[in-house]
Design a binder for these strands. Structure first.
Length: 423
RNA sequence: AGAGAGGUGUCCGAGUGGUUGAAGGAGCACGCCUGGAAAGUGUGUAUACUGAAAGGUAUCGAGGGUUCGAAUCCCUUCCUCUCUGCCA
């Protein structure tokens, strides 16, 4: 959520920036400013009356103490009149506040100045492409065939147990997942991230804090009986750890990593995009989150990109880094880099990580602040990135490394997996 | 899941209707004292909104109610602890 004070002072800038995200209703900025003015005006009015009421109440207290009952009664009647005139204002105020909040929550974050212009994924800017795309033999097959061949994942039984999109990992497939999670967490903690293992369900306040609510309600599984949501990413519980906290400045940056299962309803997907492990309702992911001092956030963002790039290099996968254009960025992000790996048999790029700087968009909702040297509290910046999403990594590892003798695993996984090859 | 107890500032802890944003203590910060430190001592020590400022408003888990006035009374709800039950 954008800060109202900032909108008030930079209305034109806000409109201009929002437009690059192809947010449809730029006029809502004007609505917000008008509502904000109304709210503040009504606040002053009601608070003035309240101040008078409070003062009178104290006077009544003193009169009662002195035993001057009659004088107290007269005061009481005065207060009663003031209160009746206040009631109407209070109703107006709470209505206006609610409207203001509803509008404010619908505004997306403002894209950073380096965000490329564009509306569709095709207009994302390729910042870097590296690694070697393998030349596969004529007999090479996509990962869903390899999965069958080596009996790594059973989609049919997953569907039997739960439904489509809930893969059942099995044998070496399950072990490869474990090896990857283990390796990713080790890599992150070695870089100074503290490891967490979070709850897989969160309450409404947490889902709201990171921006899943109210914007993306339909994308989460909702346990209505208990008012809980299955997490779409560990980002949600992990970032919310510091909700409503004031952090000591010297504790910044706070670096956290977590493995979790992720649940996404992903309504409306279809076609070859959803084959095999390309898109599923439940998947494993390791996430990194940082809470940082505002002046360092873009530097940290770049460090996180480098950090995640290191994983892909270690996994020996061909990858590319995209700077997302305004139209393809998420609601809450100010700047996002996506990582994609090249899936050689499918001959397509698959997104495996998204590294974003949210600036104060999330922390304003969560009220995550620090107290600076000047004694003023201000919001920290939050950032996060996947490191990494497992299914597509697995798909690429299988497809790109397939040989007649099995799947040759990258060196870094040998110890974790306990073997050099899946055969 | 049932029974009971409780949630107050950074922490401990007092407070059952009237200048209580909140006693007292600890911690922390700054100063004095000291050769230096400890001890001692003085001052300060929440957050948000609003206002140029003075100030004002709100906040004692959360939400609602009673009252001229609520940390204190009532209702709802969340959480923690103890006991019982159940269970990986």
């Amino acid at each position: 959520m954008l800060q109202i004070g900032f909108i008030r002072q930079n209305a034109d800038f806000v409109k201009e920036r929002i437009a690059t995200k192809y947010f449809t209703d730029v006029n809502s900025v004007d609505t917000i400013i008008a509502l904000d003015e109304e709210v503040r005006k009504l606040k002053v009015e009601t608070e003035t009356i309240q101040a008078a009421v409070n003062l009178a109440s104290k006077e009544i207290g003193m009169l009662m103490a002195k035993g001057e009952k009659d004088a107290a009664e007269i005061k009481k009647q005065e207060v009663a009149q003031q209160k009746s005139s206040q009631q109407n204002l209070t109703t107006q105020l709470s209505n206006a506040e609610k409207q203001l909040h509803d509008e404010l929550v619908k505004l997306p974050n403002l894209p950073h100045s380096s965000v490329p212009k564009g509306k569709t994924p095709e207009e994302n800017e390729v910042v870097k492409e590296a690694g070697i795309k393998p030349t596969l033999s004529a007999t090479a097959v996509p990962h869903w065939e390899l999965i069958k061949k080596y009996d790594l994942v059973d989609f049919e039984i997953g569907a039997k147990l739960t439904g489509s999109g809930f893969p059942l990992f099995k044998g070496k497939g399950a072990k490869l997942q474990r090896a990857l999670i283990h390796y990713f967490l080790d890599y992150n903690t070695a870089a100074g991230y503290t490891e967490y293992l979070p709850p897989l369900m969160v309450n409404e306040a947490s889902a709201y804090g990171t921006g899943q609510l109210p914007d993306k309600e339909g994308q989460m599984y909702h346990v209505t009986e208990d008012g809980l949501y299955l997490i779409p990413t560990a980002e949600v519980p992990i970032t919310n750890i510091y909700r409503d906290e004031i952090i000591k400045e010297e504790s910044l940056p706070i670096k956290m990593t977590a493995y979790s299962a992720c649940f996404r309803r992903e309504a409306g997907s279809f076609g070859s995009d959803v084959r095999g492990l390309n898109r599923v309702h439940q998947f494993d992911k390791v996430e990194v989150v940082q809470l940082v001092h505002p002046i360092t956030s873009y530097q940290v963002h770049q460090q996180m990109v480098d950090h995640i790039e290191g994983l892909l290099i270690a996994l020996e996968l061909p990858y590319r880094i995209l700077r997302l254009c305004g139209g393809d960025m998420s609601f809450a992000s100010a700047l996002t880099y996506d990582f994609e790996v090249y899936s050689a048999a499918q001959q397509k790029w698959l997104e495996v990580s998204s590294v974003s700087n949210f600036e104060t968009f999330q922390t304003n909702r969560m009220k995550i602040r620090f107290k600076g040297e000047d004694g003023k509290t201000q919001l920290v910046h939050s950032l996060n990135g996947s490191s990494l999403a497992l299914p597509r990594i697995m798909a690429c590892l299988l497809e790109n490394n397939q040989t007649d003798d099995g799947i040759a695993l990258p060196k870094v996984l040998h110890t974790y997996f306990g073997s050099n090859v899946i055969s």
